[in-house]
Simulated assay, not measured.
Amino acid sequence: MEPIVALQAPVTGADGEREPTLAELDAIEEELPLILAEVDLLDAHITTLDRPLTELDAQRIRRARNRVLAVRRDLANRASTALAGGAA
Rank of each mutant, 00 (worst) to 15 (best):
E2R: 05
P3D: 07
P3S: 03
P3E: 12
P3R: 11
I4Q: 13
I4L: 15
I4Y: 07
V5D: 09
V5W: 10
V5K: 13
V5R: 14
A6K: 13
A6V: 04
L7C: 05
L7G: 11
A9D: 12
P10I: 07
G13R: 04
G13I: 00
G13Q: 05
A14T: 04
A14G: 05
A14V: 06
D15V: 09
D15R: 10
G16P: 00
E17G: 10
E17I: 04
R18W: 02
P20I: 02
P20S: 03
T21W: 00
T21G: 09
T21V: 00
T21K: 01
L22S: 08
A23W: 00
A23R: 05
E24Y: 00
E24I: 01
L25S: 03
D26R: 08
A27H: 09
A27C: 01
I28H: 06
I28F: 14
E30S: 06
E31C: 07
E31D: 11
E31A: 07
E31K: 08
L32P: 03
L32Q: 15
P33L: 06
P33A: 03
P33D: 10
L34Q: 05
L34K: 14
L34R: 11
I35M: 14
I35C: 06
L36T: 01
A37D: 14
A37P: 15
E38C: 04
V39F: 15
V39H: 14
L41I: 02
L41S: 05
L42F: 14
D43H: 15
A44K: 11
A44Y: 09
H45D: 09
I46G: 07
T47C: 07
T47W: 10
T47A: 14
T47D: 15
T48Y: 05
L49S: 09
D50G: 09
D50E: 13
R51W: 01
R51Y: 03
L53S: 05
L53Q: 12
T54E: 06
E55V: 09
A58V: 02
A58E: 15
A58D: 09
A58P: 00
Q59I: 01
Q59D: 10
Q59C: 01
R60F: 02
I61Q: 03
I61M: 05
I61N: 00
R62T: 10
R62I: 02
R65M: 07
N66K: 12
N66P: 01
N66Q: 15
N66A: 13
V68I: 01
V68N: 04
L69D: 14
A70M: 08
A70Q: 13
V71M: 04
V71F: 06
R72T: 05
L75Q: 05
A76S: 05
N77L: 14
R78W: 06
R78D: 10
R78A: 15
R78H: 08
S80E: 15
T81C: 11
T81W: 11
T81H: 12
A82L: 13
L83W: 04
L83M: 12
A84L: 08
A84P: 04
G85N: 07
G85L: 08
G85H: 07
A87F: 09
A87V: 12
